[in-house]
Design a protein around this nucleic acid. Structure first.
Lengths: 227, 227
DNA sequence: GCATATTAGTGTCCCTGTGACACTATGTCA
DNA sequence: TGACATAGTGTCACAGGGACACTAATATGC
């Protein structure tokens, strides 16, 4: 090539979800510098080519800095690019979406002042930097879709969990009730869960605890849950 | 931020598929310069921030330069990044996957010397630059998956097509036979196709031609075709 | 101890959409 | 005109989700 290209600004941002009290929450940080100073934004930043083996590592590192732990689930969402999304010029952002258990981050997060969990359905009231609102909506849609044909939402739960907990998380994500029975069938059929030794009290009959089989990959079901 | 980051090389590459004679083909170009001079590679290049409104435009522009037309279908595949995939240093590549009708590009492609269609199942015999073989395999898997729950493969066909043609394309992609009946049911159920006025001879009874309804979006089915 | 409320887990029927495959329809060609 | 080839239909079996009633086990109040 004979022409010289100006390399656009490349950043990695993450939409980290969790479910708290039946509500889907997203982690946001308060911007300290321009542009959009004082607005809420997705946690992210630049690749550190010395330290990060790839962009996944960048996303993971940035999230760990805010939450104190690596996300349980991390997946590329999409690249968003254009001349107008950042006032400083043409920008390219790789967006990730990620999941953690509320119970796992809960002790850590309060220590960080500039980061906060905000309910996804309350975002209208929030000032969001750049096009981060749209990115969050895209991430939510992807998560909803995946929830219909996979067990991805388990990553919003701690290592041991009950069917009722998983049901709550799924319902928070897709915003529809599902059948307990259907969920149990899928847990059984997926073959990626183990029945734990323990049961825990639940207000009625003791609830069986489940764990993900170590090293098991998520399975995609051939049918979706109905909307 | 106080630290200065070295901006890694950012490129956009596309895996453009078509189906010819029941075989899934991918468009490759011969590299003229180092590294990997003389090897086959995915068509791609750098964003032109003056000209491209986003990375989709970059991918589309590069493909048009090779094939003479914009791809009928274009979707982001994934970002691949790392310090070792390009000998010149840390690199970030946004891979797209795209579809065109063989019938549409056929007249154009022969005029371009440096580009060529190669059967995806023959790639072992081909010297491929960088990690482009893995990227093609990823694209193929994604296309196969989408074929199970959507009508994406229509974009490998011209504006008017028969059910038999669509069946051939689908079978080339997933490498399994499917039932004619199932395909017809899905065409009907999707609601995105129109019965054309015309029929064309086929060696037996005349075949009904179908077209995509103008402006219709692809639908996702709730069940997959079985593997 | 016993009834009742509460949550966990099971049994079972219906419904929908795919797989399979035979059957009918309509064209070509010898 | 009859053989053949491809297009399109009818229909049954099967699988898995939706719905929902039923049983199981635990807590609480009397």
């Amino acid at each position: 090539m004979s022409t010289e290209y100006t390399n656009p600004l490349f950043t990695v941002d993450s939409v980290l979800f969790t479910v708290k009290n039946g509500q889907l929450m997203v982690l946001l940080v308060k911007r300290a510098q321009a542009p959009f100073t004082g607005d809420w934004a997705l946690p992210g930043g630049f690749i550190d080519v010395q330290q990060d083996k790839n962009t996944d590592a960048t996303a993971s590192r940035k999230l760990e800095a805010k939450t104190g732990l690596k996300p349980a689930y991390l997946e590329q969402l999409q690249v968003i690019s254009g001349p107008d999304r950042d006032p400083r010029g043409f920008s390219v952002t790789l967006a990730y979406f990620a999941l953690v258990a509320w119970q796992d981050v809960s002790p850590q997060i309060s220590s960080v002042e500039s980061a906060s969990w905000i309910a996804v359905n309350d975002l209208k009231k929030t000032n969001l930097a750049f096009d981060h609102l749209q990115i969050i909506q895209m991430a939510k849609q992807r998560l909803q879709q995946k929830t219909l044909y996979s067990m991805t939402p388990v990553f919003c739960l701690p290592g041991q969990f009950t069917i009722a907990q998983l049901k709550t998380v799924i319902e928070a994500i897709i915003e529809k009730p599902i059948q307990r029975k259907s969920l149990m069938r899928r847990i059984e059929a997926s073959g990626i869960f183990e029945i734990s030794e323990e049961k825990i009290p639940s207000g009625g009959r003791m609830a069986q605890l489940y764990t993900l089989k170590p090293g098991a990959d998520l399975v995609n079901f051939e049918r979706n849950l109905s909307l």
